[in-house]
């Protein structure tokens, strides 16, 4: 049995220690917001937070998550209140939407570590997340918009 903390809740799962965190989340915990896109850390669709870092869950053995805080898209905020979600809504970022969980989880780390990101920062943070619909221009705009919202929220 493996003990996990996902989105603030404790779970016990029966899994081999080398089972990727992605499949534990999706197939054992039924948290399907985290997506499978490539299986080899190329596309970022499976990005989740592990102690605040944007790990690619498809190649992260579940054993690495033991004793750490796992946050998935379902735990980013429960009611679209994260500034990134607000900005995504405001700018209608998603098209098919499949990659967007990963995009948001990556962007959330960027925004936490660099509250006022430049284009270069966004390129440096977000180029591990592939979007085949081509929403990159909107993602870039929305991250900047979210940065503004985040600032307003802090000063409010």
């Amino acid at each position: 049995m493996i003990n996990l903390n996902v989105n603030g809740k404790a779970f016990q799962v029966s899994a081999e220690p080398d089972m990727p965190l992605l499949w534990v989340l999706r197939d054992l915990l039924h948290l399907t917001g985290t997506k499978f896109g490539c299986g080899v850390a190329q596309c970022g669709a499976c990005t989740v937070h592990l102690n605040g870092e944007a790990v690619r869950s498809c190649i992260t053995p579940v054993s690495r998550a033991v004793g750490k805080r796992v946050v998935t898209i379902e735990g980013l905020s429960t009611d679209h209140l994260h500034p990134l979600q607000q900005a995504w809504l405001e700018l209608d970022v998603p098209q098919c939407g499949y990659c967007q969980s990963g995009q948001l989880m990556s962007a959330a780390v960027l925004l936490k570590e660099k509250p006022d990101p430049t284009d270069a920062d966004i390129d440096a943070a977000m180029s591990g997340n592939i979007c085949r619909c081509g929403t990159y221009p909107r993602i870039k705009k929305a991250i900047k918009e979210a940065a503004k919202l985040q600032k307003e929220n802090t000063h409010a």
Partner: peptide
């Protein structure tokens, strides 16, 4: 107008074929 599918596509609730369980 704003897209009707955005809310569920930013919180992981949108169900794709892959998510059927």
């Amino acid at each position: 107008v704003k897209r009707l599918d955005t809310p569920e596509k930013v919180n992981g609730m949108a169900k794709f074929g892959m998510d059927v369980q």
